[in-house]
């Protein structure tokens, strides 16, 4: 269970906040005119059928980033990625990665995006624990600024966070219905919208590049669901076809 890893001590701001304050005025705002122009447009993942760029091509493009930005992006991707997390990764390890990412990442929008994604994951953990009938979690179970609020408002269906996370009621409905695809679509849509807002505010900045990389990841994941579905259907059709052959030669 993840504790409140962001707390440095009584009355003191977290360590990463103090580091951020020290570097806020010294972080360069790099512009990536060539890189952004070399990226294809990404339409809403729910209406896209083909991945507009291969992973190899994406890696080639991202190689144009400044080494510092590339390092920050790679660290953030390990937390924000929709690809399946390693099973043996513990909550404590994820919390440590989150803390390290927040301390090391120079770009404010990237930190905000990682924080947003991890808050969503924390709330989802709480919703799932509650649905399993568990009591108030203790120790290390989530990350971010809302773990204490969730613990203290455990009996509230929305943990007192309905104003901050208005999507919680909808997520609860999907959980109750066992609609994993609907829930995934909702959560991916939240991050997609957030990334679109970040990219629109910083044209040709690093923000536009990492927003593309994260959106590409969402799209890649979403299309893989369709591929799995298609494979199941294909297997079913093959089975039906071979069954007919068996009948013919019977």
């Amino acid at each position: 269970m993840i504790g409140r890893v962001m707390d440095a001590g009584p009355g003191e701001p977290p360590i990463w906040v103090m580091r951020r304050r020290a570097t806020a005025w010294t972080t360069p705002q790099r512009r990536y005119y060539q890189l952004v122009a070399a990226l294809p447009p990404l339409r809403d993942f729910r209406r896209t059928r083909v991945l507009p760029m291969s992973q190899r091509r994406l890696e080639e493009r991202l190689a144009l980033l400044h080494p510092e930005d590339l390092a920050d992006l790679r660290m953030a991707v390990s937390l924000v990625s929709w690809r399946r997390q390693p099973i043996n990764r513990t909550t404590a390890e994820i919390a440590a990665m989150y803390e390290e990412c927040m301390a090391a990442t120079r770009n404010r929008a990237l930190r905000s995006t990682v924080e947003f994604r991890m808050n969503v994951r924390t709330v989802m953990v709480a919703l799932r624990l509650k649905r399993l009938g568990r009591g108030v979690p203790s120790g290390r179970w989530g990350v971010g600024n809302y773990t204490r609020t969730i613990e203290s408002r455990w009996t509230d269906p929305e943990f007192g966070l309905a104003a901050v996370f208005p999507w919680i009621p909808e997520a609860r409905v999907f959980l109750d219905q066992g609609d994993a695809t609907g829930l995934e679509s909702l959560l991916m849509g939240l991050l997609w919208t957030k990334l679109s807002q970040v990219a629109d505010r910083h044209p040709f900045g690093f923000e536009q590049v990492f927003a593309f990389a994260f959106k590409w990841d969402i799209l890649h994941r979403w299309l893989s669901y369709d591929a799995q579905k298609a494979r199941r259907r294909f297997d079913k059709l093959v089975l039906e076809a071979t069954s007919e052959y068996q009948d013919i030669f019977a």
């Binding site: 512009r31 005119y33 060539q34 890189l35 952004v36 122009a37 070399a38 990226l39 294809p40 040709f204």
Partner: peptide
């Protein structure tokens, strides 16, 4: 320079 960089990037696409 800004426009030229964007043009070079677009040429890749």
């Amino acid at each position: 320079g800004r426009g030229g960089l964007a043009a070079a990037g677009a040429m890749l696409e």
